[in-house]
Design a protein around this nucleic acid. Sequence first.
DNA 1: AAAATTTGACCTGC
DNA 2: GCAGGTCAAATTTT
Length: 230
Amino acid sequence: MFSNIDHKALAALLHGQGCANNLKTLLDNREISSVLIEPLINTILDSFSLALSFVDSPTPPQLLESSSCQNMAALVHQRSSKKDHESPNPRPDDGFAWRKYGQKTIKTSVHQRSYYRCAYAKDRNCNATKRVQMIKDSPPVFRTSYMGQHTCKAFEVYDETYGSEMIQFDQVKSELVMPTSTDHQAITIDDKARDHTMNQGCDINDFLVDYDQFWQNEFPSFSYGDTVFS
DNA sequence: AAAATTTGACCTGC
DNA sequence: GCAGGTCAAATTTT
């Protein structure tokens, strides 16, 4: 039998699957409208994130740290984890070296949003940036939105085992990463439409919603707080 | 001392 | 005027 937690995770995954199917339908119909696609992508990501948050990590972080991709991350990163406990930056390394350049309080969230750009932005004229924002407290869940493209080539020597955890397409990506308390898994989804989105004044973050709001909107059949599940 | 982070100021679009 | 994104000086860390 499934535990209550399993049910929640399952419901989140099923919801994500449904949204993925909707997305596929849109893409099949060539409806490449960012306005339609963006919410679906974010919902899918949130669903995965949520599901993962209900499941204890089967793999100790140390194992992931020792994987080839993480070794690569160490090569390009060389940063200690001294501030893991106080930084809003989720430590599941995405393999790129980032440098924080700003932090802002966002009106729609109680959590601050952190801004990072590629550590090689100047050296290699790389325009990749990412924004990290906590969307859920316990367990901490972060939404990471990737902007721009890595032209620094830091990713080229990556072992393709990373692909087993990261679904990567190309161009700009939106990513949800799980917190350090769980797995170092990342789901990366293509967001080619982002530039259009931005041009339309419809930033990807416009689809960021309060977690409770998201839960109520996306899973109206059960309440997260007091564990009413159907 | 160099590198990285923090944080208030500034810029831009709505 | 407000909100979000970026800059850059100050501060902290290594």
